[in-house]
């Protein structure tokens, strides 16, 4: 099992630019980490807006883009997270790292404080 694993959950409107698989692959290769991507889309057009009922759903099931980063080397893993935050900004909410392992979550959370792209 990898030492560091984080799930960055980007919700609608959170990433600064569109998340593209080819860009993720480049970043993963550059920093020696494995990056995978999953998009969950449950929105429907209503009243001219893309809408979704999220109040009583599991966090994992609502519309979002999940970037999963896995690595064994702390420095490479941290640098990769930094690069992702620089490109997309960090995810925004208290629950946006849900599903990460503790070592990965801790690094990703601390980096949000210093280079989230929001402050």
């Amino acid at each position: 099992m990898a030492n560091y694993m984080v799930k960055l959950r980007y919700y609608v409107g959170d990433p600064l630019v569109d998340i593209k698989i080819e860009d993720l692959k480049k970043i993963g290769k550059q920093y020696g980490t494995d990056i995978s991507y999953e998009k969950i889309e449950n929105r429907e057009m209503k009243n001219g807006l893309l809408m979704e009922e999220t109040m009583n759903k599991r966090i994992e099931d609502i519309s979002q883009e999940v970037v999963t980063v896995v690595g064994d080397d702390e420095k490479k893993f941290s640098d990769c997270i930094r690069a992702l935050y620089k490109k997309y900004r960090s995810p925004r909410t208290a629950y946006s790292l849900m599903g990460s392992n503790e070592t990965g979550r801790k690094i990703a959370w601390e980096l949000m404080e210093v280079c989230s792209g929001w402050e």
């Binding site: 919700y11 409107g13 999220t54 609502i62 208290a94 629950y95 849900m98």
Partner: peptide
Amino acid sequence: KGCRFNLDVSYNHYTYHIAPSKDY
């Protein structure tokens, strides 16, 4: 497009940042 008071942006803020916090 990202202005926080645009209807879609404030809707997304409520829908994806606030409402799901109930589950958490």
